[in-house]
Amino acid sequence: MDEVLQKIKDGTCIPFLGMGVFTNTKATDGTQIPFDSDSMILALNNGRAMSERLMYEYSRAAMSLEQRKGREFIIQMTNHIFSSKEYELPAVYQWLKEFKPPYVIDTTMDDSLQKVYEEDVHCLITGISRITADYDRFIIYKFDPSSKEYTKIEKEALKTDAPILFKPMGSTKPEMNFIVSDADFVDWLTEAMGGYAMPNILKEYRKDKEYIFMGVDFSRDTFRMVANEITIGLKGGYSLINKDELTKKEDKFITTHNITNIKQDVDEFIK
């Protein structure tokens, strides 16, 4: 464990966070913050389950809601889920705050990661989809801790001399951009396969790096594809999946990517 921690601190092992980091996170009113596909669907649909076909994965359910109510509804609803209630910074972010790794990938859609680095200069990259002006599916911001404001910068201005926070599925802040419905994911993944999902400097930086996957559900097709595209060229790494038996899809992804599974929950690993 000490070896893994040292690798995270020095940037040779990159934290890759998924929705599962919210498993033990409740808002001050006692409601659960969505931590997996099913709970995200219930949140998007006002607590009501949807048909079995739509319950397969939240992107599919979100696409159905978008077709009926419009894309703006999905954007506003996603923002409402993660912005309308107060909740303590989940344990994994409190842990990251202790040593602030130079590069973190976070596929959640709230602003917890930004709070970790709110006292430091850093760059934030958020995903974006379904735009026609450019192939790039990201926006880059630089944060000024003195003004507490983010300013957009060009990809050529991105450097690795300050921490980089990569939120490929978007975020509530500084602007509401979310990759949440099937149409969003199809567009983002298509451009990701063409090399347009992340700046070139990160494609160089990620070479020969390891990753530690925390709260990532490899049993879901969409997030295996997202993880695969972002970590191309990975050296291997670790996953935190506390199960007696992995699903075939989980086992295949872990095996083919030379990942060692640590049979612990995220919070247990941190402790």
Rank of each mutant, 00 (worst) to 15 (best):
C123I: 06
I139K: 14
D251Y: 11
Q76A: 11
Y211K: 03
D2W: 13
H80I: 02
Y141G: 08
D120V: 12
N46F: 06
M77I: 05
E119P: 08
F35I: 00
D2Q: 15
I131C: 13
D161H: 12
L17Y: 04
L5G: 09
D217N: 11
M55A: 06
D161I: 08
V21C: 01
E245R: 15
I131E: 13
T260E: 15
Y56K: 12
I131D: 09
S51V: 05
A27H: 11
K159R: 13
T256N: 11
E86L: 13
R68H: 11
S219W: 01
R60E: 12
V226C: 02
D244Q: 00
T256S: 12
K155E: 15
K9E: 08
D144W: 13
N200L: 14
Y150C: 08
Y56H: 10
I179S: 07
D2R: 15
I241Y: 07
E210V: 06
F143V: 06
D134S: 15
L246M: 09
Y150M: 11
T12A: 04
V92L: 05
L54R: 12
D36Y: 00
I164G: 06
T31N: 11
P15F: 08
E3K: 14
V104Y: 02
K100W: 05
I41Y: 08
E88I: 04
K207E: 11
I41A: 04
I33D: 13
V266Q: 01
D36T: 03
I232E: 15
M50Y: 00
E245H: 14
Q94T: 11
V4P: 06
D29I: 03
R224W: 01
K235S: 09
K159H: 09
P101H: 01
T25L: 05
M77K: 14
C13N: 02
E175R: 10
E86N: 14
T108L: 07
P90H: 05
Q114I: 14
K69C: 08
R48L: 10
E52Y: 12
D111M: 10
Q114M: 15
S51I: 03
